[in-house]
Amino acid sequence: MPVSSHELIAGFAEPVAASQQVFRAALKVMSEPGTLVETDYVEQAPKGLDLSTWQLALSLLDPDTRVWLSPTLAANDAVISNLRFHCQCPLVDAPKEADFAIALHNELPDLAELNWGTAEYPDRSTTLLVQVPGLNSAPFWTLSGPGIEQTRTLSIAGLPETFCADLIKSRQRFPLGIDIFWCCGNRLTALPRTTAIKAGMTEPSQNDKETC
């Protein structure tokens, strides 16, 4: 699909400084899983992408990263055109071939469909970026593991139950696994494969004041 120039929007105003700042936010949430961070280095994102998803894409994607998009995003001219123009990342059809997969919360691929890496090279796994309708620190999930002193709580709205169950179970296969960035508006957090998740009793609410 060619780039539609009328869909193009501006990227970072100061690409060098903003890429670094967004990376530091990504590093913060990946090394302290479940911490919520807000990034504001762009004014708008291509229609269909959240601000935080778009900023992560601008900061981390380039011609060396194969990207898979969930169906709605893959059919979205604005998303594709801007990714091609700003990141020049090749788009792939199979999630297994992707270094990065970007998915909407209701179009998540099965975890098994992604690349988990190999025993010798667990780093060759797919990194998943998920756009969710709500992201806050309400105690729905209790997290523990590296980067968390005791425990930390996190609530993610709109996730299918089977996906949550698969994610919790996937920890048994460490060091293989999928690292996930969760994006909601300008808000961002991450759960690397090391974070143990304990499901809570309450459902995460999308109408919570705390949601973004």
């Binding site: 990376f23 990504a26 590093l27 990946m30 090394s31 900061s59 981390l60 990263t65 667990p122 780093d123 990194t127 980067g147 060091p175 696994g177 690292d179 690397p192 494969r193 090391t194």
Partner: peptide, 10 residues
């Protein structure tokens, strides 16, 4: 940066 993020995750 991508390598650092993987390193932190594993």
């Amino acid at each position: 940066r991508r390598a650092i993020l993987k390193g932190v995750a594993i």
